[in-house]
Design a protein around this nucleic acid. Sequence first.
DNA 1: CTTGACCTTCCAGTTGTGGGAACCCCTATC
DNA 2: GATAGGGGTTCCCACAACTGGAAGGTCAAG
Lengths: 135, 135
Amino acid sequence: MNIGDVARRAGLPAKTIRYYEEIGLVRPPRGENGYRHFRESDLHKLIFLGRARSLGFSIEDCRGLMALYEDRARASADVKRIAEDHLGRIDRKLQELTAMRLALAELVGSCAGDGRPDCPILQGLASGDGPLGAD
Amino acid sequence: MNIGDVARRAGLPAKTIRYYEEIGLVRPPRGENGYRHFRESDLHKLIFLGRARSLGFSIEDCRGLMALYEDRARASADVKRIAEDHLGRIDRKLQELTAMRLALAELVGSCAGDGRPDCPILQGLASGDGPLGAD
DNA sequence: CTTGACCTTCCAGTTGTGGGAACCCCTATC
DNA sequence: GATAGGGGTTCCCACAACTGGAAGGTCAAG
C-alpha cells in the first residue's frame, strides 16, 4: 500500500502519517522509488493510533500504548494507569470548561444584545473599575 | 509603573505582557531608559485581558472585546455576539470531551488492571469492538 | 510526449506563552 | 571605584500536533 491507500483506510491525512513516521510511531519500509510501502501491520497501527488520538490521548501516551500493545508480556495495569491518568486530565478539563461556561453564560444572559452601548459582559470583564481611558 | 509592578497587580507574567504589547493589545510609552511605563489605564486593560483570557476568549476575541470596550458608541449586540460564539465553542468542546470521557471510562472500567496481559482497553483501541464502536 | 495524480523532502506557520542568553540600568554597600 | 543584586531590554528557541505550500521525482494512461 502507498501512503494514499493507508490514509483512506485509516481515516488519517497522509501528512499526519508522514509525521507519525518522522516521530517513530510507524516505520514503513521504502520501495525502489523511495515511496513508503505500508504493510497490513502498519495499517493496524495507524488505525490504533487514530482511535487513541480520537479519545484524546497525547502522542506520548500513544507511544506508550503502542509499546504495550506490542508487548505480549504486558500487565494490563500499565495500560490502565495510562488510561486513568488521561481520564483524570479529561475530568479536570471538563471542570474547567464547565466553570467557564457557567460564568460566561451568566454574562451573556444578562446582556440585552441590542443597539445600546450598556453591556454587562464588558462590565463584568472590567469589574466595574470604570473606563479604561484612551492611549 | 514598570512591567514588574503591573505584572503583580494584573496577575500576569511579565513575558505575557510584553507579548501583548508586541501584538498591539497594549501600548505603554517608554521612558528615557527604554523601560515601558504603564499607566493606570494600561493596568486596567491588562486586568480586562486577564479576565477575558481566563474565560477562554482567544486573543483575537480579546482584541475585539477591547475595541468595543473603548468604543463609547458600541452596540451591546456586538459584544454579545462574540460571547455567544465563544459559548458555542465551549459547548461543542464540552460535548466532545464528554463523549471521550464516556468511551474512555467504559474501557477503563472493563480493564482488570492487574498483572495479566489481557486488556479490553487495548482490544477496544485495536478492533473497534466495545465502547468505541466499529468504523 | 504530455497530462495529471501521486509521491518525495523541506520550510514555515499555527496558539499563547515559557525558558534562557546576553546585555543595560539603578541603587546600595564595601 | 568596584561590585552585587534586582530590575529592565531584545532576541531566538521550544512546545503539541499537525497543516499548508513550494519544488521536484514517479507512474500509468491516452
